[in-house]
């Protein structure tokens, strides 16, 4: 069991232009392009990493943020192990929309208990001088909404990016361990998809 590399599906959600693709590219390829095309449709990249001695493959899904594309985006929420709710610290509206994103994800991913689902909040673009959202505001929001961990990131400067994704992996593994303990070993947990190493690609 421990030797097997798990595939963890992580999905980045948030308003258009907050830097979802940039965060993914910084983490997976350690590259940053301020003028990267906005995402059309859905894309994903894989990244292997080791957390606390366990090898996992993060499959990071990136989606188009505009409301119009909701119906073509939401089917991909299914099977996610962790959701990274992203906003831009220079964009107050994108912060205000976090609640909407959280709700949309919980609904379409069919999450029964959103409060115990591993959401992680990312405030991106901290390299920008004109902030519209303060750290305290976000922390308060996180506190009021189930105590999700919060990371202030910069895809541009690579600040906190790896830390955030690693935390995502750690949270998922911890949750699985907890569930494994709670459940008798001969009961198959139907809510979780089995980890199949043959499914991870490229």
């Amino acid at each position: 069991m421990a030797a097997k590399s798990s595939l963890l599906k992580v999905i980045l959600l948030g308003d258009g232009g907050v830097g979802k693709s940039s965060l993914m590219n910084r983490y997976v390829s350690d590259k940053f392009d301020a003028h990267l095309f906005h995402t059309i449709g859905v894309e994903f990249l894989n990244k292997e990493l080791e957390v606390d001695g366990r090898r996992v493959t993060l499959q990071i899904w990136d989606t188009a943020g505009q409301e119009r594309f909701r119906s073509l985006r939401t089917p991909f929420y299914r099977g996610s192990d962790c959701c990274l709710l992203t906003f831009g610290v220079d964009d107050a509206q994108s912060f205000l929309n976090l609640g909407h994103w959280r709700k949309e994800f919980a609904y379409y991913a069919d999450v029964k208990e959103p409060d115990s689902f591993p959401f992680i909040i990312l405030g991106n673009k901290i390299d920008v001088v004109e902030r519209q959202v303060t750290t305290e505001e976000v922390q308060r929001w996180c506190c009021d909404n189930g105590g999700h961990p919060y990371f202030e990131t910069s895809a541009k400067d690579a600040t906190n990016v790896a830390e955030a994704f690693e935390e995502a992996a750690r949270r998922v593994l911890a949750l699985e361990d907890r569930q494994a303990h709670v459940m008798p070993s001969d009961v198959v947990d139907l809510r979780r998809k089995p980890r199949s190493s043959s499914r991870c690609c490229l």
């Binding site: 119906s71 073509l72 089917p75 991909f76 299914r78 099977g79 379409y108 139907l190 998809k193």
Partner: peptide, 15 residues
Amino acid sequence: QQRPDEEVADLLGEL
């Protein structure tokens, strides 16, 4: 059958 990919596909199919 409960398969995430298939679920995604089904949801897309509903669309």
